[in-house]
């Protein structure tokens, strides 16, 4: 009569094969735990030729939220003629981003009139600036209260 067999007939591997397998595994594990998250969520990127600062014109609330962006060079002079794109994302997946542009109003100031918040919660506003063919970006974190 045939029977279900237990798996006791295995041959233990030699310590050399164990080492061969476990050493790279350990190295990969060590490399992985040394990883750090990419820092683009809250960091300014670019070559430093443009300094980006931004603020909302009024306290954050659901609805229209015009945003003023100030672009300066390292000496503090306003940067003119830049293209400024504003992207508002929530911190939860699946939420449609708000994407608009900011228009120059002079003295290195740019205003994103169409910026608005569609929902309460945490927002990550990314300001992407293209000036003199160079691209820089900055991030503004905003909490929109529920009421």
């Amino acid at each position: 009569m045939s029977r279900r067999l237990s798996g006791s007939g295995r041959t233990p591997a030699t310590s050399a094969s164990r080492t061969t397998f476990l050493t790279p595994l350990l190295l990969v594990a060590l490399l992985l735990v040394a990883c750090e998250p990419p820092a683009d969520r809250a960091a300014t990127q670019g070559d430093g030729s443009v300094v980006i600062s931004a603020e909302l014109e009024a306290p954050a609330a659901i609805g229209p939220a015009p945003l003023v962006v100030r672009l300066t060079d390292p000496e503090g002079n306003g940067v003119e003629g830049a293209t400024v794109r504003v992207e508002g994302d929530m911190t939860h997946a699946g939420m449609q981003p708000v994407i608009t542009t900011a228009d120059a109003v002079g003295n290195g100031l740019y205003r994103a009139e169409a910026m608005h918040f569609t929902m309460a919660g945490d927002w990550v506003i990314t300001i992407v600036v293209t000036a003199d063919g160079k691209r820089s970006s900055g991030v503004l974190l905003v909490n929109v209260p529920g009421r």
Partner: peptide
């Protein structure tokens, strides 16, 4: 998730897993 843009609605990790 490890190498992409760390904004949840723009990343495959957070979108595919949590949504």
């Amino acid at each position: 998730g490890l190498t992409g843009r760390q904004v949840a609605p723009r990343n495959v990790a957070t979108t595919a897993v949590w949504l």
